[in-house]
Design a protein around this nucleic acid. Structure first.
Length: 298
DNA sequence: ATCCGGAAGC
DNA sequence: GGCTTCCGGA
């Protein structure tokens, strides 16, 4: 627990130094290497803020503002906050992280040899490749697969493309704080401040997760998008649009449970206990059956 | 309460 | 284009 905040703090100072060092140069690639887990920054600030209100609103139990765990949370908040407020364009932003490590493989975009490592992040984008993504259930047998989807009307599974066509133009990688919803959710899933609490994996390797506290997650999303009226109804619609795009599937019969059709390989999985571990996982089936999973053999 | 997908708006 | 908002319906 304590280590986490320290970690973040360390990282924070790192950040400062880095931004100073490179105050006036568009550094290429390198940066990425120096930042082991940008995720740690993630939405801690955001989350903490929410934490305070969420607790009283949703949870039936109240949590004292100053519980052993909360205090360090505040430290974290401060650290993360100072970071967020720095918003120096030179440093690695969340968005950049995504564009650099997650966007690459997506779809057609990068068909040409990206040798023109022009500037800054561009290089990385081109350099990173499909190996960064792990497509879950990418086996095609469309017809059969469909029919065996247990349950009602066989949800039409999009013509499965080898990789989901989450096509985010490589050139204009997310600008501003524009994480897409799916990215946002992945962030939350890697953020200890919210992961087991509001959103969690029910089967990490299958990309199946649950919005344990749908209201809270929706609120965080709304905050991110600056849409104060965001709610699960609305966010849910956005989620549903993802079915069509092959980014998400619904896990039928399980409320608030969805499934990513594909995950980045460097995803940090926060599991129930606490063991945060980097998972590589080559298809194989060391499925850790946490609780409810009816993962298709695929 | 959640989930669904159409329609329209931004 | 990626949602957001609203809706009638399951």
């Amino acid at each position: 627990m304590l280590q986490q905040s320290e970690l973040i703090f360390d990282y924070a100072s790192d950040h400062v130094n880095m931004s100073q060092l490179m105050a006036h140069s568009d550094y290429p690639a390198v940066i990425v290497e120096q930042v082991p887990h940008p995720h740690l920054l993630s939405y801690t600030g955001l989350a903490c803020e929410e934490l305070q209100t969420e607790e009283d609103q949703q949870q039936l139990f109240k949590v004292e503002p100053c519980e052993s765990g909360e205090e360090e949370t505040m430290e974290t908040l401060v650290a993360a906050d100072s970071l967020l407020n720095m918003d120096c364009p030179e440093t690695l932003s969340l968005e950049q992280h995504y564009s650099q490590t997650f966007l690459p493989s997506l779809g057609d975009v990068i068909t040409t040899p990206v040798t023109q490592v022009t500037v800054s992040a561009e290089g990385i984008v081109g350099a990173a490749d499909q190996s960064q993504w792990h497509s879950l259930h990418t086996k095609k047998p469309v017809a059969q697969l469909q029919s065996r989807k247990r349950g009602r009307k066989a949800r039409y599974q999009r013509a499965e493309s080898p990789t989901p066509d989450i096509t985010v133009k490589k050139d204009k990688y997310n600008k501003g704080n524009t994480l897409y919803l799916w990215q946002f959710l992945m962030e939350l899933l890697q953020d200890r401040q919210v992961c087991p609490r509001y959103i969690k994996w029910t089967n990490p390797h299958a990309g199946i997760f649950k919005l344990v506290n749908s209201k809270a997650v929706a609120r965080l999303w709304g905050k991110h998008k600056n849409k104060p009226d965001m709610n699960y109804e609305t966010m849910g619609r956005a989620l549903r649009y993802y079915y069509q795009r092959g980014i998400l599937n619904k896990v039928e019969g399980q409320r608030l449970v969805y499934q990513f059709t594909s995950l980045p390989k460097d995803m940090i999985y926060i599991t129930e206990g606490d063991g945060t571990k980097e998972e590589e996982e080559d298809d194989d089936d060391h499925n850790d059956h946490s609780d409810n999973d009816e993962v298709l053999p695929l």
